[in-house]
Design a protein around this nucleic acid. Structure first.
Length: 427
RNA sequence: GGAAAUGUGGCUGAGUUGGUUUAAGGCACCGCACUCGAAACGCGGCGAGGGGAUUUAUCUCCUUCGAGAGUUCGAAUCUCUCCAUUUCCGCCA
């Protein structure tokens, strides 16, 4: 959500933002609706003032005056009732439109419509192909099924489409990644948290996943939802609060199960662990002062930490800057990190890093007092730290040996009880 | 799941026979004075969101006492629904 004053003063900018994000949004309709809203609001407030004034006079009025006053009040009330109904109608339309206003993308965001138009801005490591491996690399499905590390058949029997069981050393390696991540980020001053996945509707409205993301979310019969990322609960943690400036920035590393319907991706990646309905994620979240430079600084910082993981685990990756059409409604700028997948001979997304200015915190009402004592909305940012099993399959594919065993990345050995190689020779 | 009690501004806490409390008092915070400096004392200020006017500093109005609806000329105060907390009972990883 943006400030209505800002929207009115910068309607051209909002138009450009919608165009750049390839979003259909009519600012003029909102401005028109706001004019109407203010107009009726003024009338309503005048009548309320009159009502308050008369009701104060009543107890002091002489008995014979009293009934006349009460009669007068009746007229005011009738008029007020009609106007309030009208106001509510206008407000409903106004609120709906306000939730659809796109945030303004940064100048450095490239033009484009889909992820095809994202631009590579950094590349690290040498993507391994058959030549470097010295054998034809297999995909994670073949390796993991041969090692009895995954059971899709029983996963689907139990959970439905995209269901899976992780087993044996793969399950241990998955846990090792979480532990490695928790330790890494907490040593950088992030507060480790395990956060709810089952959340209320308002919680999702706050971070902007509703109403837009309705189709991708699971919900229960009580109307609660299962969040698709730990960001949702983490952002709601301070909702409605006024923070101390001295406590900023707030940095969190949050862990939770994540649920996504993957609507619109039904034909995509139907096999394997790349795209699943239920997974685990460590998420980085930062709340900082309301200042563009601060946002940019922490955006680069969050991104670099995720890159450190890929580098410490020696996974070739590249970073792309997302084009306008690939940005969410609230995002100012976004980077995707993509790691090398030998089986597909291309990069696959492992996480995305974005900042929002005060788009989310306006909805969430998270503020702080600046040095002049004025209340401001904090800025928010988030980035995937480690999402599994997607990250797990990247490791398995990149660290596979010719006989089907998998070498444990050095950084993970301490979390695997010292084990350096997992699996049996199966090929 | 059942029963009872409670829910007031950053915190604490009065107000619950409905009407100058249109939210007292205290703590914290800010300013002034005192002091070599500080604490204590003293004086003054101090919730949030929004509208309007203008000499842009102030004036003025509306909303806000967990959320929503209702009764009333008038609701923090009465009624209903929901939510949360606490205590007791039941069930249970």
């Amino acid at each position: 959500m943006l400030d209505i004053k800002f929207i009115k003063e910068n309607s051209e900018l909002i138009k450009m933002a919608a165009t750049k994000k390839h979003i259909n949004f009519n600012v003029d309709e909102l401005i028109e609706s706001d004019k109407k809203r203010i107009e009726i609001l003024q009338k309503v407030e005048d009548l309320r003032a009159k009502q308050n004034a008369v009701s104060l006079e009543i107890p002091q009025a002489a008995p014979e005056e009293r009934s006349k006053k009460i009669e007068e009040m009746g007229l005011v009330k009738n008029e007020l009732k009609d106007l309030e109904t009208e106001l509510e109608k206008v407000m409903e339309n106004w609120r709906t439109l306000m939730l659809k206003v796109p945030n303004v993308p940064d100048m450095s965001v490239p033009e484009g419509n889909t992820d095809e138009d994202n631009q590579e801005v950094k590349k690290w490591g040498n993507p391994k192909t058959e030549k470097e491996f010295g054998f034809a690399p297999k995909d994670h499905i073949e390796i993991m099924e041969a090692q009895d590390w995954v059971d899709f058949e029983r996963g689907i029997k139990t959970s439905g489409f995209r269901g899976y069981f992780l087993k044996g050393d793969a399950a241990l390696l998955d846990v090792a990644l979480w532990q490695y991540g928790m330790q890494k980020w907490s040593s950088k001053g992030f507060t480790p948290m395990i956060v709810p996945s089952l959340v209320k509707k308002e919680t999702l409205l706050g971070s902007g996943y509703l109403p837009q993301g309705q189709d991708d979310l699971y919900n229960d019969i009580d109307g609660d939802y299962f969040a698709g990322t730990a960001e949702v609960a983490t952002m709601y943690y301070h909702a409605g609060e006024i923070l101390e400036k001295k406590d900023l920035p707030k940095k969190f590393i949050s862990f939770s199960p994540c649920f996504r319907k993957e609507a619109g991706a039904h034909g995509k990646d139907t096999k394997g662990l790349y795209r699943v309905h239920e997974f685990m994620k460590l998420e980085q979240v930062i709340l900082c002062e309301a200042n563009h430079e601060e946002s940019v600084k922490y955006h680069e910082e969050l991104t670099s930490y995720a890159e450190e993981v890929a580098e410490e685990l020696n996974l070739p990756y590249h970073r792309v800057v997302n084009c306008g059409g690939d940005l969410g409604l609230g995002q100012v700028k976004k980077y995707d990190l993509e790691a090398w997948m030998p089986s597909k001979n291309k990069y696959g997304e492992t996480g995305s890093s974005s900042y929002f200015h005060d788009f989310q915190t306006r909805r969430l009402n998270i503020r702080y007092r600046d040095e002049e004592g004025k209340l401001k909305f904090v800025h928010s940012l988030n980035n995937t730290a480690i999402a599994t099993p997607r990250f797990l399959l990247m490791i398995i594919e990149n660290y596979q040996n010719a006989d089907g065993t998998v070498t444990v990345p050095e950084a993970l050995i301490p979390f695997m009880g010292g084990k350096k190689i997992i699996g049996n020779p199966v090929f």
